[in-house]
């Protein structure tokens, strides 16, 4: 019975990681950049919703939409103000600049809002759903369903729409993409916007069960990043698989092995993947290794 609960808990929290991983993949697909400020979009979605709900007294649904939009707009700002000026810089510079963005966003959130934790009401009550002797908060059903829908939508978006294909093309070869008339700059901006929207949504959806605060983005961002790598960077289905595997490993190692070392086990798994299968579970072998 315990084992089922571990599994259910793992899938629940893992689906939240998956949603964040999707954000990483969106930007990676369009630009080849890993955005270290991704966790801050998650935070903005959550803290923004809290702000609009508790302080401006918006109805819950509008508060959440505003929170998500706030994350999206921040995504555009990050791209316009810090990524575009150094689009052709080395990976190292891009990593550092996004780290700078994350410090800045976190600092502003701390000063504009506060340093406390905050909660939102659950979307459909707090009465847990029982399932084979395990219990799960209804909020997690929301998260799981939203992650699966997002994954399918985005998979389709990249495969079947012109904008999606343009995004993929400009990631693979920006010069060629430009030659065939793709506005690479606009594509990059879109990718940051959409990615921030998805991460903001993850943040807003999680807040009722996990609570939120200005500094929650670091750890969630890292977990989301790990999920994206385990699944296979750039793969939408990989994000879901990676997120859920990470969640399950975390849950089982906390329950069965040691709760103190659970994060070490999670990161250990990540390293193992990087060493043995850097393309991730669903990825194809790419020449990222020497």
């Amino acid at each position: 019975m315990d084992l089922i609960q571990y599994l259910v808990s793992g899938i629940s929290i893992g689906s939240a990681y998956a949603l964040i991983a999707i954000g990483f993949n969106l930007i990676y697909n369009a630009t080849g950049i890993i955005n270290f400020a991704q966790g801050e979009f998650v935070m903005l979605g959550g803290m923004g919703s809290v702000y609009f709900y508790h302080y401006l007294h918006f109805p819950l649904i509008f508060a959440i939409l505003s929170g998500i939009l706030l994350a999206g707009v921040t995504g555009i700002l990050v791209e316009r103000l810090s990524i575009r000026p150094i689009r052709d810089a080395s990976i190292l510079s891009l990593i550092i600049v996004t780290i700078g963005d994350s410090i800045l966003i976190r600092g502003i959130a701390m000063l504009v809002w506060d340093k406390n934790s905050h909660a939102l009401p659950s979307f459909s009550g707090d009465i847990p759903i029982r399932f084979l002797g395990a219990a799960v908060s209804p909020q997690y059903i929301w998260i799981i369903v939203v992650s699966i829908i997002s994954m399918l939508l985005l998979g389709g978006f990249f495969r079947y729409t012109i904008t999606g294909k343009a995004m993929l093309a400009s990631s693979v070869d920006p010069v060629a993409a430009r030659l065939v008339g793709i506005n690479v700059e606009r594509v990059t901006m879109y990718s940051f916007f959409i990615s921030a929207l998805f991460s903001g949504m993850a943040g807003a959806l999680m807040t009722p069960v996990t609570l939120t605060s200005y500094d929650i983005g670091i750890s969630l961002g890292l977990k989301g990043f790990a999920a994206a790598v385990v699944g296979g960077l750039g793969r939408m289905s990989g994000a879901l698989v990676g997120g859920i595997i990470l969640g399950i490993v975390e849950s089982f190692s906390a329950g069965l092995i040691s709760s103190g070392y659970k994060d070490a086990i999670t990161f250990g798994l990540l390293l193992l993947f990087l060493y043995m299968r850097p393309q991730g579970i669903v990825g194809e072998i790419k020449a990222e290794r020497v």
Partner: peptide, 11 residues
């Protein structure tokens, strides 16, 4: 900054 402690509580 953990967001879910159901595993520990289940144990």
């Amino acid at each position: 900054k953990d967001t879910d402690m159901t595993a520990q509580l289940t144990k």
